Computed example of a mutant assay.
Amino acid sequence: MKMDTRNNLHQQVKEKVLFVLGSTATGKSKLAIYLATKFQGEVINSDKIQVHKGLDIVTNKVTDEEMCGVPHHLLGIIDPEVDFTITDFCEKTLHAMNSILDRGNLPIIAGGSNRYIEALVDNETLSFRNKYDCCFLWLHVSLPVLKKYIYERVDQMVQSGLIDEVRDFFTLDGDYSKGIRRSIGVQELDAYYRAEAAGCEDKEKLEKLFEEGIDTMKSNTYDLAYRQFEKINQLKLEKGWNIHLLDSTEVFLKRGFQREQEWRWGVAEPSMNIVSNFLYGDKY
């Protein structure tokens, strides 16, 4: 009987899974990859747009170099024209988690589609919390500071070739309600590309349409970041999720070496301590 009891107790031990939450542009991918290198992890993308193939600049997909050899799942795997539903996300994420756990590695789910994450974790049918022990990290940046950074990042995307990249996806009958065309940066530039396609030679008009499109892209990206902030706050305060806040504001106020140093002190080390306690300690 004692042996049976021990076996039953062993069977009740939950597998562990780590979530990296945060608004767009707060550095979730960087933190997820860093933690994956420290805790033998693999990253599962939870951004419903980045799951599609294409538009790597406008969707800000992590590059092969930035991955640092860490395996990534659900990143750039779905046809651009196909919708990726919450049901699809839950099914593919559970499949990826099981394969990661079978290899003895830690699943790290990172991305900005918080409704998808909520559906995965709180869906009673999936019994997710009964099967898995969850640790939630929230990478937060003060919204005024994040707004400035988002605007700067959009300008950097333009310099990196965003305009040509999105132009390749432009069609006169494009459906902006499905697939990768829902990405911020596609519909905002529609008027500009339509004027080009119509053979507009008025440079001032084209320049105005271009600037209006970029400005709208900036404001829409910030609006998304704000909604993401509100959603995570709701999960923490209203739904009672045990979410660990990592304030990265000071990182974004620094430049160069000082920024990286601040990231080590203010983000990397605290997150390491939280995850260590989660994986190996009694409390987290």
Rank of each mutant, 00 (worst) to 15 (best):
D247T: 15
Q234L: 05
N242S: 15
E262I: 10
F257S: 11
V186G: 00
W265G: 10
A225G: 00
E211V: 14
K231M: 11
G213V: 11
E201Y: 06
Y226H: 10
V251A: 09
I243K: 00
W241T: 06
K239M: 14
Q234H: 09
C200F: 03
W263E: 10
E201M: 02
D247V: 10
N273A: 09
S219G: 08
E250D: 11
N242R: 13
F252Y: 13
R255P: 12
L209V: 07
Q234C: 02
D190A: 12
Q258E: 13
N233V: 08
A198R: 10
A198N: 12
L235E: 01
I232H: 13
E207W: 01
D215S: 12
S248T: 01
G185F: 01
R194E: 00
E196K: 09
Y226R: 10
R255W: 14
L209S: 13
S248K: 04
Q261I: 08
H244K: 15
L224R: 14
E212S: 09
G199C: 13
E212F: 06
M272C: 06
V267G: 03
G213Y: 09
E212H: 06
S248L: 08
R194G: 02
F229S: 13
Y222E: 09
Y193H: 09
V267C: 10
K208D: 11
Q258K: 15
I184L: 06
L245N: 12
E212V: 06
E196A: 02
K208P: 08
W241H: 05
L189F: 01
R264E: 15
E262L: 11
K231R: 15
I184F: 03
M217L: 08
G199K: 01
